[in-house]
Amino acid sequence: MSDKPPISERGAWSLAWQRFRHHKLAMASAALLIVLAVLSAVAPLFEIMFGIDASRVDLLHRFTLPTADAWLGRDELGRDVFVRMLYGGQVSLLVGAVTAIAAAVIGTMVGLAAAYRGGWLDALLMRFTDAVIALPFLPLLIVLAAIDLNKLGIPPALINSELISLYRIIFIVALVGWTTSARLVRGAALSIRERDFVLAARAQGASAWRIMGVHILPNLVSPIIVATTLSAGKIILLESVLSFLGLGIQPPVASWGNQLTNAQELIYSAPQLAFFPGIAIFVTVIAFNFLGDGLQDALDPKSVSHASTGR
């Protein structure tokens, strides 16, 4: 007790950490996501250690139930479900994180520009944001996912690369997913813009870029972090739906969604295949949601609006 400085001398981040630590579910979620990320990252190690090749087709051992050498059984092509799920985890977590961050960056730039410039630019950007929000999300994503990239003049070398479906899904989800953070940033920036310290900076002749970057943006970091965490969960859900429908990540690249694509046809012969990848999606998304909730309580203790579980 005595070696800690009094509350008044500790920084805002240290206080936030104090609050976050007491949010048990959020702490557990953070730990779980780290474990999932590490396990996915070392998927090749698993293959070497246990002598498994996750992409090797073995038609003589299809649909086997979980055993000692294939922990979660084998799929319709006799591939190891567990190791393929680790590879799927790489893709799903990567898509979730990269897309959420890309959407947050776009949204932050749009929101800041609208709030700071005001006037016609604000009106234009916000009408545009409203318009994007008022679009039917999933049908539009399906159209964007089905587009023939050759007709857009994209180099064939890129189109034929195995990872094109990964780039494509990150791009199209970010393209429609930036609106939440744009509105959030604009709203918060508008109120901060009128505060005295911004006025003081302007009186000293600071440029618009400096005011936005040095004075306004740092004050927006907490709401942006919270919104980005929550949106990562939503994006993983979207990716899984699109991949499940055959429009997201394309086999042979594994993702949790496309591991479930054949599950419906196999529901009589191998119902266990529908189970594990779905659990992985569910657990990951709920962890992102608890984490976002905990971060909200920790970074913005005054807000009641989404207060919370597990304190």
Binding site: A274, G278, T309
Partner: peptide
């Protein structure tokens, strides 16, 4: 209640549908 609400939000609809069919 909060926990259950979060669980509902985080369920992939297509997976829930598969489980219910099973």
């Amino acid at each position: 209640i909060n926990f259950l609400a979060f669980a509902g939000i985080s369920l992939p609809s297509f997976w829930l549908a598969l489980l219910l069919i099973t």
